[in-house]
Computed example of a mutant assay.
Amino acid sequence: MNIVLTGSTSGIGWETLKALMPLADRVFLPVRNISKAEKLTQHLFQKEKIVLIPMDLSLMSEVKKGAMEILEQCKEIHILINNAGGIFPSGKKTSEGLDLTFATNHLGHFLLTRELMPALIRGQAKIIHVSSMAHQIATDPSQDLGLLKSSNTGSAYGKAKLYNILFSNELKNRFASKGISSYSLHPGAVRTSFGSETSLWAKLIIEVSKVFFISPKSGAQTSIFLATTPKNQLKNGGYYIRKKSKPTSSLAKNQKLASALWEYSEDVLKNLGLI
């Protein structure tokens, strides 16, 4: 079994990696910092299974290049876990002119999944998206899908987490007939370095709240559950909390919005000359 896992060097991604490694033939890890990843993984049992791929998910040119590297080494992918994410100051842009929250939490994974699709189809893959209950606070993003006008950090993050679910649903609609299954999940409020790049006020709120947070190991359990449970025991397109399928917000069920997000994402990538 071949696995691709983003956001693997900390938090629930690290716990997910350790749990799934014994089951894998190879694990491809797109990472922003290769030297950090090498140090972290050098003592792991069966570390020879790991393939590190240079990739900053916020930069679409790097995502495209990294996806090509994976495809050169792997013809079939059986599990893709879109785990990486972050909460960033509103209005912060990437060097490609994209909103950083939009690029990191949605568009990077959209492009990675799109580029890997031939191998995902050959592997009849599961695609797992780490979303959040924060999607419940999202208002209708139709007039600003790229989050370029968003002035509120929390609001932008909520919309990005909504996008994870919309993307998962649209993948099911477009590719279920080709053997693809797609799931989204809320991992719980996890005690990690999450939010370290956001505003001082947001950092303070996160730190005060951490007394109520769960451990990264606990937070990884639903991702691990979805990766290891047979497809016929899961709901394709389902949203999971604590290993159980749960309802989403009404916006997350909106198929017109899911389709519009897909089309918008492709348009952005076309404008960048990447598809």
Rank of each mutant, 00 (worst) to 15 (best):
R32D: 11
N33S: 14
I34H: 05
A37R: 06
E38A: 10
K39V: 01
L40R: 12
L40Q: 12
T41P: 00
T41Y: 03
Q42D: 10
L44R: 13
L44K: 13
F45C: 11
F45D: 14
F45T: 15
K47H: 14
E48T: 09
K49E: 02
L52G: 03
L52Q: 07
L52D: 04
I53Q: 00
P54Q: 13
M55Q: 10
M55N: 01
D56Q: 13
D56S: 12
L57P: 05
L57T: 05
S58Q: 11
L59D: 12
L59A: 04
L59C: 09
M60L: 12
M60V: 00
M60P: 04
S61Q: 13
S61Y: 00
E62G: 03
E62P: 01
V63H: 00
V63N: 01
V63M: 02
K64Q: 11
K64Y: 11
K65V: 12
I70W: 00
I70L: 05
L71P: 02
E72Y: 01
E72K: 14
Q73M: 14
Q73V: 06
C74F: 01
K75Q: 14
E76I: 03
I77T: 03
I79H: 01
I79A: 02
I81Q: 03
N82F: 03
N82G: 02
N82L: 04
A84S: 14
A84Q: 04
G85N: 08
G86S: 13
G86D: 13
I87V: 15
F88P: 04
F88L: 14
G91H: 10
G91K: 09
K92E: 15
K93V: 13
K93N: 12
K93T: 14
T94N: 10
S95I: 11
E96S: 09
E96G: 08
E96L: 10
E96D: 12
L98K: 08
L98T: 10
L98P: 06
D99N: 15
D99M: 09
L100V: 15
L100C: 05
T101D: 08
F102D: 01
T104L: 09
T104C: 12
N105F: 04
N105R: 06
H106T: 05
H106F: 10
H106A: 06
L107I: 08
G108T: 08
G108W: 03
G108D: 05
H109F: 11
F110L: 10
F110T: 05
L111T: 07
L112G: 03
T113W: 02
T113H: 00
R114D: 13
R114I: 04
R114G: 00
L116G: 02
M117Y: 05
M117T: 00
P118R: 07
A119Y: 08
I121W: 05
R122H: 12
G123M: 10
G123H: 07
G123C: 13
Q124D: 13
Q124W: 00
Q124E: 15
A125Y: 06
A125H: 07
A125L: 10
K126L: 10
I127P: 04
I128V: 14
H129L: 11
V130H: 04
S132P: 04
S132T: 13
S132K: 09
M133E: 15
M133C: 09
M133I: 15
H135I: 09
H135T: 08
I137A: 15
I137Q: 15
A138M: 11
A138N: 10
